[in-house]
Design a protein around this nucleic acid. Sequence first.
DNA 1: GCCATTTATACTCTCCGTGAGCATAAGATG
DNA 2: CATCTTATGCTCACGGAGAGTATAAATGGC
Lengths: 318, 318
Amino acid sequence: MARSPQKSSTPASGNAVTADLVAVLVAVTDGTPDIMTIAGGSALPSGPFEFTHRSLQTALRAWVEAQTGHPLGYVEQLYTFADRGRSGDARSPHSVSISYLGLTREDEVGEGFEAHWSGWYDYFPWEDHRAGAPGFIAKSIAPKLKAWAKAAPSPALQRERWQRCAITFGLDDRDWNEELVLQRYELLWEASLIPEANHSRGREASVVPGKPMTADHRRILATGIARLRAKIKYRPVVFELMPAEFTLLQLQRSVEALAGRLVHKQNFRRLIEQQELVEETGAMAADTVGRPAKLFRFRHAVLAERAVAGTKLPLSRT
Amino acid sequence: MARSPQKSSTPASGNAVTADLVAVLVAVTDGTPDIMTIAGGSALPSGPFEFTHRSLQTALRAWVEAQTGHPLGYVEQLYTFADRGRSGDARSPHSVSISYLGLTREDEVGEGFEAHWSGWYDYFPWEDHRAGAPGFIAKSIAPKLKAWAKAAPSPALQRERWQRCAITFGLDDRDWNEELVLQRYELLWEASLIPEANHSRGREASVVPGKPMTADHRRILATGIARLRAKIKYRPVVFELMPAEFTLLQLQRSVEALAGRLVHKQNFRRLIEQQELVEETGAMAADTVGRPAKLFRFRHAVLAERAVAGTKLPLSRT
DNA sequence: GCCATTTATACTCTCCGTGAGCATAAGATG
DNA sequence: CATCTTATGCTCACGGAGAGTATAAATGGC
């Protein structure tokens, strides 16, 4: 880097790169969180950034709308990668990849596109704790992690590795922290339990369940899931994923789908209502089992009232 | 964007860009939060990304260490900009700017460099509420914002604008939220109260106090301050800014310097100690007024123990 | 040496948010 | 009508956080 602030655009050939966008587009249907994928579910939608657009967000929105025929509700930048070793070949034109998180409603997606939806727990089965911790964590993942920890060169490093495993996966009676999606993925990668890791070549038997993805797309997805799980706790972004009218249980199911854990029903309702996030439509839910529920809609006014202030969901760490 | 995930590096001439890094480097000395600046304090350190480095972080660290002669404690990506209108001239080689937040210790900076430190409240005087809300907010900023709100075309829009002003600046008896740094800056920009805004040309009399910066550097700084103010509440990053040994009051003063608000001393100590973030060195502070305080050091073990879990500071929103 | 001043440090008290559980209501189904 | 399922109202106990009181330990001025 040079010190001059203004003349940063010295068009030296060594600095020319291409800019790529990668999108984590999320929707929720019937309690299943989905992401948009291409290439048979093996990659996230991505491609070169067109500088005909005014900004990155504009480019992303335009592209998604062309794909789905519907505007993107919420967009947020995730991370920018420029690692040299990323593109595979060594000294080819370098590429900067800018990843985004976008929220939309699945039911509005048009037909006839290559893109389609995949459940995000297909890629991260260990992240779904709605029915308790998945059995294979204790049965399969934990022992493999233990073996990896034991393989460390010194006893101190062995303890350190295992402590990391225990913290991120909630082992040894620790609490499960649903926000550590990326840390868990990176840990599994380091332990060579992820097919994408080069150093797990030829050892396909010893990998963990979960569908792999092209390049580092699954890592980007992990980043997106982690960001979203954190975000729903203090911003009213869940509503971007809901239909115009919904019951409180449907809302709760969506939150639980994203968080990968269950919440206390009464407390959930108390929180939603006391924050005045929703208002009754007057109508009741039809075609339902059990007592019919009131229908609610999101009070869009809260976006102006509270601006960036706060929304709370009963997902706090204990 | 195309749909193919792999062949993203079509070296079409229209997609070639240059990658720039912009850094918000923070240090705290004697209760003053400083940022590294160049060009007489009118710009953040920035320059083209050298692809000889393995990653963006590596490049940033190498550069900062060359500048300051000291390793960078904590580094975090802030945001990536690729707005077309950003570089000023229209169709020149496009540039992607990747901004970073970095924490370091000011006293370790080498001599003889162009870079030097500037107090960050020079650029954002309205952000320092340690001695209560600065008087010029009520005297100068609020009336100008009110005028701007009144200039909206419809009564509804006028109310909306004013509500936004009141929320972000804590007017009308609202609480001051120190995290809304970026929102406040953007609001002032929209209201043409910021010299950097093109539409305030020739109206220099009606701008708000605070030193301007080149291009959108002050906006990037606002992003960094906001991120840091949020971060110190749940991650032990303050310690990256502290000397090896410090008293609890010094620690508190640093937190207050960053947050721009005071905290309750006893509660602060209770929180720090019950979380076992620090340990006594055994020594006492010398050359001090009043009763001497114990010296503490950061317990680096917490980084391993809690990994990403949690650190709390008494800065919660009430 | 005494006092004012400044900082350090120990306790206490109250309020409220939150987790958790109990109880009841209102539909559908057989 | 019994049962199942979901909706909805209410209570209770615990713990964390804000705020205040009290005391200890140093300095400097007179």
